[in-house]
């Protein structure tokens, strides 16, 4: 089977297989920008492989050369000369005619918290602060239940019953409500960070996080200190996540 020994066909097969694996083999689908990077690496590797010795390189070039010069490949050559410019022209058209999309909003999702905040006229140190309700293990289930009630009456509209950020109001909000199930949110934050975010809400964000866009209210107007700590307990309990601990001094 000379067909399978052709270096050109081998190279083409590897590239096509790599593309199929990247595009259809991974769920959820990988973004195009990532596929492009991987394909570039595959192409480079294939190129190094086929050019590793002169026999291989000749075998790789043979079909390309014959397509370019052999008289009996005239039809294929002519077809390529028409099809390739048309494809490139179509690509240029699709680029020129594309409608612009909304600009991406780059914002710091978890900005550095302040060392301390003013909470209802009292200074609260965020740095090194732990949830005071965790000290009494006996009352913990009760506190979690109280937090659940606060959550369902206040937070569920945006953050959802599943705590996944898919509440009923989520479709109109940009940035979208936080997904507490995501290991990239509350699981990597200390509880006092959550206290700061809940107490001060969107308006309390620093500029790099776009305080003008976040629909998160400043809950210090509605919830006192204990109730905020209770709802934080509930967030971790309901998602099965654990808060990040302060590093031991």
């Amino acid at each position: 089977m000379t067909l399978f020994r052709s270096r050109f066909l081998q190279a083409a097969a590897v590239v096509v297989l790599a593309f199929c694996a990247l595009r259809f083999g991974i769920q959820p689908p990988v973004p195009w920008s990532v596929i492009k990077i991987y394909l570039f690496v595959v192409l480079a590797a294939v190129f190094i492989y086929v050019s590793s010795d002169s026999d291989s390189w000749r075998s790789f070039l043979a079909p390309i050369r014959s397509t370019l010069v052999d008289p009996d490949r005239r039809v294929l050559r002519g077809a390529l000369m028409i099809v390739v410019p048309l494809l490139v022209g179509y690509y240029a058209y699709s680029q020129a005619a594309a409608r612009p999309e909304a600009p991406p909003e780059l914002r710091a999702v978890h900005p550095a918290p302040p060392a301390s905040i003013q909470f209802r006229g009292k200074e609260l140190s965020i740095q090194g602060l732990d949830n005071p309700l965790r000290k009494d293990a006996a009352t913990l289930p009760k506190q979690v239940a109280a937090g659940g009630e606060i959550y369902i009456r206040n937070c569920v509209y945006c953050h959802g019953d599943n705590l996944d950020g898919h509440g009923r109001f989520a479709p109109a909000l940009n940035p979208p409500p936080a997904n507490f199930q995501d290991p990239g949110t509350i699981a990597m934050l200390q509880e006092s960070y959550l206290f700061w975010r809940i107490a001060k809400g969107g308006p309390g964000l620093p500029k790099e996080s776009g305080p003008w866009s976040s629909a998160m209210p400043a809950w210090e107007d509605r919830l006192d200190e204990t109730r905020i700590w209770q709802v934080i307990l509930y967030l971790y309990d309901a998602t099965g996540q654990h808060p990040r601990r302060w590093e031991a001094k």
Binding site: M81, V84, P85, G89, A92
Partner: peptide, 15 residues
Amino acid sequence: VVPPLVALLTGAAMA
């Protein structure tokens, strides 16, 4: 205007 121009240039380069 641009796409036909791009197609023509590609054809010329191939030739």
